[in-house]
Design a protein around this nucleic acid. Sequence first.
DNA 1: TACCTGACCGACCGGTCGGTCAGTTAGGAA
DNA 2: TTCCTAACTGACCGACCGGTCGGTCAGGTA
Lengths: 215, 215
Amino acid sequence: MEDKLTMHGSQDGASARDRLIACAATIFAQRGYAATSVADIAVEADISKSTVFHHFASKQALYLAVIESAAQDFTQTLETVLDQSGPLEQRLRDFQSQHMAHILTNAWVTQLVLRELQKTDSEHSKHLIEDVLSRNFQRLVHFIEAGQQAGALTATIDPSVAALTIISSNVFFFQHRHVLKHLPGFSDHDNPQQYTEKVIDLLIHGLKEGDHPCD
Amino acid sequence: MEDKLTMHGSQDGASARDRLIACAATIFAQRGYAATSVADIAVEADISKSTVFHHFASKQALYLAVIESAAQDFTQTLETVLDQSGPLEQRLRDFQSQHMAHILTNAWVTQLVLRELQKTDSEHSKHLIEDVLSRNFQRLVHFIEAGQQAGALTATIDPSVAALTIISSNVFFFQHRHVLKHLPGFSDHDNPQQYTEKVIDLLIHGLKEGDHPCD
DNA sequence: TACCTGACCGACCGGTCGGTCAGTTAGGAA
DNA sequence: TTCCTAACTGACCGACCGGTCGGTCAGGTA
């Protein structure tokens, strides 16, 4: 069904179905499911509303296709960051940096995924997203555990908690980046990379002054 | 306007207007603005839809009242946690713990506030919330700065970044607490207080093993 | 008694929503 | 040429939405 090269109405390279998913993704991400009308999506995709229902059985089916596509986007990235060589601290820094860059460049998709994750009634779609998140989470946890076993990281801290703290700082920055501008005294609101550096600095060295007097 | 003690139709203690706001808050928080109908709110509040429009000029006006009420709820708490005495580390621990407890007990309001914060078009309502957040943020930043000047905390880390990391870990836990259950190897999903303890442990002592060899 | 007022309601309105359907177009196979 | 089929469309439908309107009812006041 994907190898159809004959297109009548559409002059774009991508298939009408893919264009439809892409347009729907941004609008769903911007306005949410209920506030998005099928007519809006049709206008954005430059087709009629009926054509939307020709490609998808319902609005919900279109939304599920969007979520599925978003989940695929998430899986194909961030896979190789932790597998590189180099000093452990630098690899942690790279992960944080690339993770931040990824969610910022794929902002609409990220927003869509996060919004879906916050629904209390999971039903469909949430499971695939959870699978993706679980995989990324486990990879990061294993990386930290390896650092602990190698003696490079403190063995007493919970690697799951450390991983979540790393991820949450990036997600929080992303979700509230437009609010952070108005926070008094916060200078890194328009410099996410510097923010990730500072967070890793904090996580590695800790807050307590007396903990490393032998520098 | 608040001192009306004569109520005709309602047998509850709170005024019908307050009950309306309370009911609307939970439904708005659960389903979002667009997905919530005035009829739904009316049913929940056990009044007719017309009565909703008797108390509020429009659905939007009701929503703004809900947001305003939610902002007030947020200001009145968390004001005295940091002002107590005791060792600095314990006060940080208390803040994290009480902040977590607060957003969990006021879950619906918190969800409403967070959802409102993520809107790209701020318009109304966002400003008051930003005021509340800025105040809490500044208070935490000043606390950390004081710890730095007293020599108890490392002077090289950015206090704003530390404050945001503290807040973000709690917010992230709250937002994704239902997803965390399905994360493999994460044991604290149903124990938020233990999670806050571990986060503070991590933030205070840091990840790096070699940083505190003199314990 | 008579009057006023505010809380409240059922019935209703214009508009928008998701979804259907009959019909048109155009390329490929025979 | 004929037929098939997928892509596509405008017209339309019932359901539901936010909001209005006319009116009821219970208390306060004089």
